[in-house]
């Protein structure tokens, strides 16, 4: 009963947040909201891979880029309609994800991190150098505007509606996956591969599938991004972008799916809000990441629910998130 009420409350909050841009009805606000949506999909998919399955994938932006370039080329140069290109680019990215998974199976921990970073770097170098295909460092301009079943999407508001639907679908898909036996299997791989195998989990199969499905959604968001901005270049998908995504999931909480939505939202909106700081923005951004990891090891959602829990029970349970104070930083250092 209480759980149900909480759920309804959360839904009301979600609807309220989603409707904010409509109330403000400003192009710039819609733009930020659309960008947040794109990053929400990316960080949710990265979280399933890194947070839930424990695969140190440090090159997620490459999948984002593969989806973007695939979709741009399919529509621009082959003349496919948006919807087809959108789905095909997701599938193509999933296919590349599977190809990457096969060698990645052999690597663990930091070696997988290094390998996937190299993959990200290779993707960027190729997209810079294969000029005839990718337009080189200047990028690909004139990517057609999307049209969904005959309706041309041109207004920021329409993009916003579309991306919101996409975020909700992505959330539902990953949430269902995590709740199911397959989600338990993924988490068991993260916790202890040997024990997971000993209870019947086919690790190889699961790792390949998780690479495929997370790459699929990264590819979809890449496709959306390409058609939304109608221009892409290699710098959009650099290694630093992968690191940004990692910061988003750390802020929301590693292995916390709704957290990724919150984390992506915050880290897209905050730099916009602090635009007036100009050169200090990067400095603050970097320090924010440091402080998040030191102070909120469970992410912002874990911290808030820890606070709520403390209020309810008014007692400190073992394993609850650490207190938010200067002493904790000093202690942790």
């Amino acid at each position: 009963m209480i759980r149900n009420r909480k759920y309804i409350l959360l839904q009301i909050i979600a609807v309220a947040i989603i409707s904010v841009p409509f109330i403000l009805d400003d192009k710039y606000i819609f733009h930020i909201a659309v960008m947040s949506g794109i990053y929400m999909i990316l960080s949710m998919s990265l979280n399933v891979q890194l947070g839930f399955t424990g695969l140190f994938s440090f090159g997620h932006a490459a999948f984002y880029g593969i989806g973007a370039y695939a979709s741009a080329l399919l529509t621009r140069d082959l003349g496919l309609p948006f919807v087809a290109a959108f789905i095909l680019s997701g599938l193509f990215t999933a296919f590349i994800g599977t190809l990457i998974a096969l060698p990645a199976l052999r690597l663990k921990g930091i070696f997988l991190a290094i390998g996937t970073m190299c993959f990200n770097e290779i993707f960027c170098l190729l997209s810079t150098n294969l000029e005839s295909l990718t337009g080189g460092p200047a990028g690909l301009p004139d990517i057609p505007v999307p049209s969904v079943f005959g309706l041309e999407i041109t207004q920021p508001k329409d993009y916003y509606i579309l991306i919101t639907l996409l975020v909700l679908v992505t959330y539902k898909v990953f949430d269902n996956l995590i709740k199911s036996r397959h989600g338990r299997a993924l988490t068991s791989i993260r916790d202890d591969e040997i024990a997971a195998r000993a209870i019947g989990v086919n690790i190889t199969n699961y790792k390949i599938k998780v690479f495929a499905i997370t790459a699929f959604f990264a590819g979809l968001s890449g496709s959306f991004f390409a058609h939304y901005l109608s221009y892409i270049s290699p710098s959009n998908f650099a290694l630093s972008e992968s690191f940004n995504l990692m910061a988003m999931i750390a802020l929301g909480g590693i292995g916390n799916l709704p957290g990724s939505i919150v984390g992506a939202g915050i880290l897209v909106i905050i730099p916009e809000v602090f635009r007036f700081l100009q050169d200090y923005r990067e400095l603050i951004y970097g320090l924010t990441i440091v402080l998040i990891v030191l102070l909120l090891p469970q992410g912002i959602i874990g911290w808030i629910s820890g606070l709520l829990h403390r209020q309810q029970t008014s007692q400190d349970l073992a394993g609850s998130p650490k207190k938010f104070s200067v002493e904790t930083i000093l202690h942790r250092i």
Binding site: F58, Y280, R281, G286, I289
Partner: peptide, 30 residues
């Protein structure tokens, strides 16, 4: 800052902190 608090834990936290440090050091020098 980045390693001692996380000894024997996942390498993810130090990785993230050093990413943050690298961003802010670049910005600071700039």
């Amino acid at each position: 800052i980045a390693f001692r608090p996380f000894r024997n834990e996942s390498p993810l936290s130090p990785a993230l902190i050093t990413i943050g440090l690298s961003i802010s050091l670049q910005a600071g020098i700039l």
